[in-house]
């Protein structure tokens, strides 16, 4: 790791610590029951934000790598929207089950992944088909969610109502993801090579890709159940770090995760504190914060072309 990369990592990490501490201890004058607020509201919300950053960043790296399409993430191929639609359905049909929304979201994310693997992913080497097909599916799920929640008063898309149960389920899902990660992460860099070469190296690519995609879909589905879909966030974070650090897939993962956590912490700080007592939707704030970075990337790509 170069000094520039170490410095960047250190700055991002320090930013995360600063924002985490700020969220935890910054006192808004009108608030009473300070201890209760920290333990029951701010702490679970903060931990969930960390998990959300991890999920958005890691899922983007894993899906882009295993599909060999750097400009894709789980929001663009329908995994996040599928999870969001499932939560909307649960809200309308069996609202009592919503206490398990993180688990339901993870399962929905995985089911969407399996649906994609049996259809669009079969043509993964046709970039346009993958992107347009995935995006159509995402938009379809999005439209259904809008129709379902039109008059239900369902707010969703905020980290304001995160509970300790949500945090517990996310921790459990993350633990399962870590087990899968430890078994498969050593193969991650090989996805930079063409499929013909990984076959000749004796790597069971189909099995490894499935495991890594399950991690991505499970984590992304779980956090989307609470946060809602954040279009393009994963792509922007992954590509920005790639352009800036010039690191390979595996070496980039810690950078992407820390940067993604920093973005989520910043977005939620803005969402919660800037217009208090009005709570802004965190996913929308995150998207707005990342928009300049997305434009910058577009300009860099256009120059490269």
């Amino acid at each position: 790791m170069t000094n520039k990369q170490k410095l960047s990592f250190g700055l991002m990490f320090s930013g995360c610590i600063f924002l985490a501490l700020f969220q935890l201890i910054y006192k808004i004058e009108s608030q009473s029951d300070w201890q209760l607020i920290i333990i029951q509201l701010r702490l679970p919300r903060l931990i969930f934000e960390l998990g959300t950053g991890l999920a958005i960043g890691l899922s983007a790296v894993l899906l882009a790598a295993t599909l060999r399409q750097p400009y894709l993430d789980g929001s663009m191929i329908g995994i996040a929207s599928g999870s969001e639609l499932t939560i909307a359905l649960i809200t309308v049909l069996i609202p009592a089950s919503l206490i398990y929304r993180v688990l339901i979201g993870a399962v929905a994310g995985i089911l969407c992944l399996l649906l994609l693997r049996s259809s669009i992913f079969k043509y993964h080497n046709r970039v346009l088909f993958l992107i347009i097909g995935g995006f159509c599916l995402a938009m379809f799920f999005n439209a259904l969610t809008t129709i379902l929640t039109e008059s239900s008063g369902w707010a969703g898309k905020s980290l304001a109502n995160v509970t300790w149960l949500d945090v517990g389920w996310l921790a459990l899902i993350t633990l399962v993801a870590i087990v899968f990660w430890q078994k498969n992460s050593r193969y991650l860099d090989y996805f930079a090579l063409p499929e013909l070469q990984t076959k000749q190296l004796g790597i069971d690519e189909a099995k490894v890709a499935l495991s890594l995609q399950l991690i991505a879909a499970g984590l992304l589905g779980a956090v989307t159940a609470v946060l809602g879909t954040v279009f393009f966030a994963g792509v922007v974070v992954n590509q920005l770090i790639r352009e800036y650090t010039h690191l390979g897939i595996a070496a980039r993962v810690p950078f992407v995760i820390v940067f993604s956590i920093l973005d989520v912490l910043l977005a939620d700080t803005v969402a919660h504190f800037i217009f208090y007592p009005t709570e802004l939707p965190t996913n929308a704030v995150l998207l707005v914060l990342l928009a300049p970075a997305f434009l910058m990337l577009l300009m860099r790509w256009s120059r490269a072309i």
Partner: peptide, 22 residues
Amino acid sequence: LFYLPQRSEVYDYMTVKQLLEI
């Protein structure tokens, strides 16, 4: 046996050294 295709693509950032180290 090893097969080298007509054209090979690298899908992410990878240096010459990293490839040859494999």
